[in-house]
Nucleic acid binder design. Structure first.
Lengths: 124, 124
DNA sequence: CTCCGTTATGTCCATTCGGGAATAACGAAG
DNA sequence: CTTCGTTATTCCCGAATGGACATAACGGAG
C-alpha cells in the first residue's frame, strides 16, 4: 500500500537573506541556540554531530552576512575561551522562530486534499 | 553602503512529498511546464540550459514519487517520439502554483522590519 | 612560565551531484 | 527497409560539499 492512506505532505524551508546572501536558515538558527546554551562553538558542534570546522564556518558566514556579530567568540582564557550569542543573535533567533511559525500556520491552512493529483472533471 | 537601505529579505522554498520522497519542487514544476509547451523532454532541457540526462532523471523521479505518471514519454515514431504532461501533471502544476501563491502571501504579511536585528530594549 | 581547552586555519580525502559524451532502442513516415 | 529525432541508459569526469585530522594562536589560572 504505497499510497494506501494519504502520505502526501507540504514541506517549507525558510531563510533570511541580506544583500542576497544567506543569513539565517534552519541549521544556522539551531546552531545559534546550541551555542547559546553551551557557550562554546565546539561543544555546540559536538552536540549537533557536526564538525567544529563546519560550525565555525557557519558562524563566520552568519556574522558577516548579518553585518552585526550574532556570535562573539574569544580564544584563550580560563577554560580555553568560549563563545556567546549576542543580543542581536538572540533577536535573530526570535525573529526566525516567528517566521517559521507564520509559514507553518499557512502550511496548515493550505493542507493538501486526500488525492492531490486527481484530475479535475472535464468542463466541456 | 553595505546596509544603507534595507536589503533584507525572506526566501521560501516549497515542495511536495509523498511517503517522504520529493515529488514537486520549483525546478521540477518549471520542467513540467517546459515539457508541456515543448512536448519533448530534450527540448525542454535545452531551453532550461539543463542536460537531457538530468531532465530525464527528474521526470523518472517525479513519476515514481507521485505514484502516477505526470509525464508520458514515448520513443520512436514520427519526429522521434516525444513527451506530454498528463492530466495529473497539469493538476500538479496548478496545485504547486496555488501553494506558492499562498506562501508568497504569507511572506508579504510577515515582511521584515527595516532593522531586523535591532535588539529589543532591556526590560529590567 | 607552564598548562589547558577553546578558537582559528590549513590540508587531505570520501562522497555527492550533475554535465558531457557515447550508444542503443524505438517506431512512424517515406 | 531506411531514415530521423527523440527517448532510454551507461560511463567518465570536474566541481562542490563537508568530515577528519593536524597545528597554531590565544590568554587566564596556577
Amino acid at each position: 500500500m504505497a499510497s494506501g492512506k494519504s502520505d502526501w505532505g507540504i514541506k517549507v524551508r525558510v531563510w533570511v537573506e541580506r544583500a542576497g546572501v544567506k543569513v539565517l536558515g534552519p541549521g544556522r538558527v539551531e546552531l545559534l541556540e546550541h551555542i547559546d546554551r553551551q557557550r562554546s562553538i565546539s561543544a555546540a558542534a559536538r552536540q549537533m554531530g557536526m564538525s567544529y570546522r563546519r560550525a565555525w564556518e557557519l558562524v563566520q558566514a552568519m556574522n558577516e552576512a548579518a553585518g552585526v556579530e550574532l556570535v562573539e567568540a574569544k580564544p584563550g582564557g580560563s577554560g580555553g575561551g568560549g563563545a556567546a550569542v549576542t543580543a542581536h543573535g538572540q533577536e535573530a533567533i526570535r525573529l526566525y522562530h516567528s517566521l517559521v511559525a507564520s509559514f507553518a500556520k499557512t502550511s496548515q491552512d493550505v493542507a493538501l486534499p486526500a488525492e492531490p493529483l486527481a484530475a479535475p472533471p472535464d468542463t466541456t
